[in-house]
């Protein structure tokens, strides 16, 4: 048997895929979405708190945020998920029983928060100090100015980097299988792997991969579209941001001038 056809049969066995597909869509996809979406929400909220703590004038906020970020960014995701999932299992048992899911979501959120915090912080710090001064001069307190003026602008500037992190989160959600899930809790990757293990054919794993792409690729393009809208405003009514129009325009014209020379 030549290598090419072996490859074909190992990964592109349509019957194996068809067999795995229903469970992939009814069990794997919802579970992956539950894990990724809840961790994305929790991780983004926590990340925003870390970002604000990270630029705080108080070292008692800045320092813990720094240490947290270093630790959770520095550990392998698999290690963190195991440490949290196993380490906090007794506590989890008391609060919500033997279900490892909440701990999995918690671990994913804590990891995502470390990265998202750094992304948000860089965005917030890129907003000109004059914006803060303008808001303070109107009589807004520091926290009001941050909430209404600085943070909204800062986060809009880092949407693409934030999406990167959400994509990583969708993929990392497969790691919760370390925590020993029951059949109905298996996410995409685990279902693919189980089929592969029982049939000896990897096609179900490839199908899982396609499902991940079906999630991540549209997400990227959706947010890129939102990002463009935020930069250039809506065609007619346009109640959104255009703060970087000038920068973009001048950067572009600068580039074309450079080309001409």
């Amino acid at each position: 048997m030549d290598p090419l056809s072996t490859l074909w049969e190992t990964f592109f066995d349509w019957d194996a895929m068809r067999e795995a597909l229903p469970e992939m869509l009814t069990v794997g996809l919802p579970n992956t979405l539950i894990l990724a979406v809840s961790a994305a929400l929790l991780g983004s909220v926590l990340g925003l708190l870390l970002a604000v703590a990270g630029i705080s004038r108080s070292r008692w906020l800045r320092w813990p945020a720094r240490v947290y970020t270093d630790v959770f960014r520095g550990l392998p995701a698999a290690a963190t998920i195991l440490l949290i999932g196993v380490g906090l299992a007794p506590l989890g048992m008391q609060v919500w029983g033997p279900d490892p899911y909440p701990l999995g979501i918690l671990a994913l959120s804590l990891i995502a928060a470390a990265y998202i915090g750094e992304i948000f912080r860089s965005g917030i710090q890129s907003v000109e100090a004059a914006q803060l001064e303008g808001a303070r001069a109107l009589g807004f307190s520091w926290s009001e100015a941050m909430r209404m003026v600085i943070i909204p602008q800062g986060i809009r500037r880092v949407l693409p980097a934030w999406v990167n992190q959400l994509i990583a989160l969708i993929k990392d959600s497969s790691l919760v299988y370390f925590l020993g899930l029951v059949a109905s809790q298996r996410e995409l990757f685990r279902i693919g792997q189980d089929y592969a293990a029982t049939t000896g054919n990897e096609s179900a794993l490839l199908l899982a991969g396609l499902c991940y792409l079906a999630l991540t690729v549209p997400l990227t393009h959706a947010v890129n579209w939102i990002d463009r809208r935020l930069r250039h405003g809506r065609p007619a009514t346009a109640p959104i941001d255009e703060d970087e129009d000038d920068d973009t325009a001048s950067a572009l014209s600068g580039a074309t001038e450079g080309d001409r020379r």
């Binding site: 004059a130 909204p152 809009r156 109640p239 959104i240």
Partner: peptide
């Protein structure tokens, strides 16, 4: 100071308008 700044209006060299909001807002 926040109450004071509501009594004292200030206009800046670089305007410092909020770019993510309409003029009205």
């Amino acid at each position: 100071p926040d109450a004071l700044r509501q009594r004292v209006g200030m206009v800046f060299q670089q305007f410092n308008l909020f770019p993510h909001m309409s003029v009205l807002r």
